[in-house]
Simulated scan of single mutants.
Amino acid sequence: MSHLLDLDHITVRFGGLKAVDDVSIRVKAGERRAIIGPNGAGKTTLFNVMTGVVRAASGTISFDGANVTGEPVHKRAARGMSRTFQITNLFPRLTVEENMRLALRGLSPRKFSLFDSGALTPDEEARAHRALSLSRLQERRGAQVREMSYGEQRQLEMAMALAAEPKLLLLDEPAAGLSPAERVIVADVIRSLPRELTLVLIEHDMDLVLQLVDYVTVLNNGKLLVEAPPGEIRDNPDVQDVYLGKARAHA
């Protein structure tokens, strides 16, 4: 498989702090990759660099064969990047269907039209249907978002990202704040996504994430600590030290 995403010696500075320090990651087309690490490891900053929210101080980013290092968010999205965020970013007083309509209109050249009816085209309707079906929300189209459980809201955020029919989907802590039952549902949604969709996710729940991915990148203090298949990560002594070292020191 070819590399869909290539981060080459990426460094991000906030003042004197190196939030990401000379990190290189290569993600193959169709791969499912997890980026894990303790709080402050640089995971979300790295996501923000991938999508163009944050500019790298040095290094290059290639996506789908193109150098996108200096491209803004909307151009990377147009190339096929889509993401969710740690905190849900929805319109709570609107329905599921209305949120999906806004997501799809945001992708359309008609979004600035003053004379358009706002109705979705047949193709957009089909995309909304597919995304809601993948996210297991097809029966909830008429539900108002503020009346939905937090787990369902996370599913809706995934559906809105999937509506763009991306080549690369980035999920930032999709199970954060969910109950055990909701985690099972979200994990099943992620597991059932088409294998041709390349997936990169951040997640603190190691038990969850190791069931979902093909490969794991571990960050610590902004640096790349180790990369390995899931079966090698749990028992890796460096990973154990990062996650359990402080507890051992105070035991």
Score class of each variant (00 low, 15 high):
D116A: 04
N99T: 08
T69L: 06
M50T: 06
N89R: 01
H129Q: 15
T121M: 12
K28N: 12
T44S: 15
P122V: 02
F85K: 04
A56M: 08
I25G: 08
G80S: 06
M50V: 14
R130W: 03
K75E: 09
V54W: 07
G106F: 13
T95C: 08
A77M: 10
R127N: 08
T95P: 00
V49N: 09
A78M: 15
P72R: 04
K28R: 15
E71T: 12
I61W: 00
F115R: 07
T84S: 14
M100A: 03
I36S: 04
T84P: 00
F112N: 04
I25D: 06
N89G: 08
A77Y: 12
T60K: 15
R130I: 05
N48K: 05
I61Y: 09
V54P: 01
P122G: 03
L90P: 03
T51Q: 01
I36A: 06
R32N: 13
S113D: 14
S62F: 05
N48T: 10
R110P: 12
A57F: 03
D64M: 04
R130T: 04
V96G: 10
L102C: 12
M50P: 08
S108L: 01
T121G: 06
N48Q: 02
F85D: 01
R110D: 12
G65F: 00
L104P: 04
Q86P: 04
S82L: 00
I35Y: 06
T88Y: 03
A77H: 04
T69G: 08
R105W: 03
L114P: 06
L94Y: 11
T121D: 11
N39D: 13
N48L: 13
A126H: 05
S82G: 02
R101H: 00
A78P: 11
P72W: 09
T95L: 03
G106N: 14
F47Y: 13
T84N: 02
A66G: 05
L102S: 04
L90E: 03
A131T: 02
R130P: 07
V68Y: 00
I87D: 13
F85P: 08
V53R: 05
S117W: 12
R105V: 09
G59Y: 00
F91T: 12
L104W: 08
R33T: 09
V54L: 09
T84Q: 04
F63M: 10
I87Q: 06
R79D: 08
V49M: 08
G30S: 10
V96L: 12
G30F: 10
K75H: 12
R76A: 11
A77F: 03
E98D: 15
F47N: 02
L104C: 00
N39Y: 10
T121F: 05
A103C: 13
S58C: 15
M50L: 11
G70P: 01
N39Q: 04
T51E: 11
T60W: 14
K75L: 14
G59F: 09
R26Q: 15
L107Q: 15
A103K: 07
R26F: 05
A34W: 08
M100H: 07
G80W: 02
K43W: 11
A128L: 00
I35M: 02
